[in-house]
């Protein structure tokens, strides 16, 4: 395997271990958001429950908190959009290198300098 291939493999394994490790290490933990942990801390320091002076617009519109399933939908939309563009980009670049040959290199030189 090439040097780059090894780096990629080791990196990906490290990412999976780092990301999923805590799930197994801390069985039964709640895994709430750390933003919420932040607001708990605010309450602890100021000594009283902080009343946010502005609530999210969407929550005002639908009159309550966003349902968990819908929230995960929005998160998926965000991830999906991102992955789509990234995949398109890399797909384009890889294919260009594979099939474009020398012609793509030539184009660079004709590019206008700013």
């Amino acid at each position: 395997m090439s040097r780059n291939g090894k780096i990629v493999l080791v990196s990906l394994i490290a990412v999976v271990v780092l990301a999923l490790g805590p799930l197994f290490a801390l069985r039964g933990a709640e895994f709430g958001g750390s933003d919420n942990a932040g607001s708990d801390k605010v309450a602890e320091i100021t000594g009283e429950e902080y009343e946010p002076w502005f609530t999210p617009i969407l929550e005002q519109l639908i009159g309550g908190e966003l349902p968990g399933e819908v929230e995960s939908l929005f998160f998926c939309v965000q991830t999906g959009l991102g992955v789509g563009v990234l995949a398109y980009g890399f797909g384009y670049l890889v294919a260009r290198k594979k099939y474009g040959g020398a012609s793509s290199e030539k184009n660079t030189n004709s590019e206008k300098k700013p």
């Binding site: 990301a19 999923l20 490790g21 805590p22 799930l23 290490a25 801390l26 933990a29 709640e30 895994f31 709430g32 958001g33 750390s34 919420n36 942990a37 998160f75 965000q78 991830t79 959009l81 991102g82 992955v83 789509g84 563009v85 990234l86 980009g89 890399f90």
Partner: peptide
């Protein structure tokens, strides 16, 4: 692609050792 990378990365909530995401 750079913008998309920010989109993807900031949408992934990952569990951590402190028991929060």
């Amino acid at each position: 692609m750079t913008g998309a990378f920010v989109f993807v990365i900031s949408s992934l909530k990952i569990p951590s050792v402190t028991g929060s995401c």
